[in-house]
Simulated scan of single mutants.
Amino acid sequence: MPADGLITIQSSFGPEETMKKFAAAAQSKGMTIFAQIDHAAGAAQVGLSLRPTAVIIFGNPKGGTAPMQAAQTTGIDLPLKALVWQDADGATWLSYNDPAWIAKRHGLQHEAEAAFKGMSDALHAFAAMATKPQMA
């Protein structure tokens, strides 16, 4: 059962390449990569195993400030995050929170509609660039 507000797309690439492609796509559109968290590496440090699982935290204050001005609690969900993970069958997936869900979660209707539409469009584009082979 999918989590509420979570968009998950299968990648045509492995976890490392998917993460690199996602970061490159975000940076090419002026996004800042604030952090990358490798959960599998963290698990290994304490003697546990975890299939490839990593989060990238990214954003742009120009797009994220309007939602926080309308509802400061939006800051718990911003900057945006994407999760790249590998399932038990070896398939790679990219997951992220739907910006429309974030808006609903914080009770925003029209106050930051343009910002959330921009986030949604950007995430869709970044996900496509990271998970699908690009046509020449």
Rank of each mutant, 00 (worst) to 15 (best):
A66C: 06
G14N: 05
Q69I: 05
A26H: 00
Q134W: 03
P15R: 13
R51Q: 14
I76W: 11
A24L: 09
H106R: 00
I37M: 02
T53E: 09
M31E: 06
S28T: 15
Y96V: 05
L78I: 02
T32K: 14
T92K: 05
A115Y: 01
Q134R: 05
R105S: 02
Q27Y: 12
L6G: 09
K20W: 14
T53F: 04
A35C: 01
F58G: 00
Q86Y: 00
W101T: 05
G14M: 11
G14R: 10
L50S: 05
A130K: 09
V84N: 13
A122G: 01
A24V: 12
M31D: 09
N97F: 13
F13L: 05
T65G: 03
S120T: 13
P2K: 06
A41P: 11
V55T: 08
Q109P: 09
G42C: 15
D89R: 11
A70F: 15
A128R: 03
A24I: 04
G59A: 08
H110K: 10
L48Q: 08
I76G: 09
G118S: 08
P61R: 03
A25G: 12
R51W: 10
A24G: 09
Y96I: 05
G107R: 13
T65I: 05
V46C: 08
A25F: 13
A23K: 10
M68E: 15
V55Y: 10
I76L: 15
G59P: 15
P52T: 04
L123K: 06
A125I: 03
M135E: 13
G59R: 06
S11C: 08
T131Y: 02
P99I: 05
A100Y: 14
F116P: 01
Q27I: 13
A71R: 06
S49F: 12
N60K: 12
G75Y: 00
I56V: 03
A130E: 13
S12V: 08
A43N: 00
A26M: 01
D4C: 03
E16K: 06
Q36I: 13
D98F: 10
T131R: 01
A3C: 13
D4R: 02
